[in-house]
Amino acid sequence: MSSPIVKLVAQRVALGILLLLAVSVLIFAGTQILPGDVAQAILGQSATPESLANLREQLGLNQPAYVRYFQWLGGVLTGDLGTAMSSGQDIATSIKGRLWNTLFLAFWAAIVAVPLAIILGLIAVRYRNGWVDKLISGLALASTSFPEFFIGYVLVYFFAVKWQIFPGISTVYDGMPFGERMQAIALPAAALTLVVLAHMMRMTRAAILNVMQSAYVETAELKGLSAFNVIRKHAFPNAIAPIINVVMLNLAYLIVGVVVVEVIFVYPGMGQYLVDHVTKRDVPVVQAVGLIFATVYISLNIIADIAAIVANPRLRHPK
């Protein structure tokens, strides 16, 4: 690897870490601004000034905010996310399984959605402005325009209730055989795919159409390449940077934005966990989940940036 790439990548990573620190400050500050604190939440109605003071002392809440921030940050860095107030359980342990479930679902949704979106985008460009293009764009747009819960329930109605191919409730447990697990996530994965498909497809189409005007595309046509090969070999590699960007944004959505779909299918993922604890005002859990979501978002965007840098031959092969 040549030096400009190493430098650019290092810059991006450093920037990402800085950004993550900033986000952690914001999350911490945000939860401090909320009225009441953990001690009040735990004691609830039975709080007396004395018991509050005692509990605050016990939990270390009477220390200044910055001290508590660094204690929290130090804990996070060593894998200690704290204890959930509502259940008294260790957050890291309860999150681990759920994070794994969320990633599993997102992974399989992405495996279907990303190649499908790109191939549909390529086909749409090949038959641009014809009926195939309009059909693809129309269907993709329609699937995005319907709210997730609507798509979810439609899927449940047909595939679980009417035809009974897949289960309507995606229960998964530890040690579940792979085949059964896949069957359980089929419907939520399909719902997620339909949600993210259009955005990626349309971006692929737009990015490729943008380079279809280039002189090198004409060169390829004048070599006698078939229309599809012109798009695949000559247009697509030059449109990759914007496509990667939108793919990564959608991958991030698959992980952090699946709350509704998880609730519909009663899937034990991060989204449900977050919603549960927001209603319980369980601040440590909300902080931990927020930080994990931010990490996912920032990492994926760094990966997109790096991929776009590496995809650029001018940076990969300097003069």
Partner: peptide
């Protein structure tokens, strides 16, 4: 053979 070879060659290959 195009006017601007700089534009007529694909930058990615």
């Amino acid at each position: 053979v195009a006017q601007s070879a700089a534009a007529a060659f694909n930058p990615a290959h």
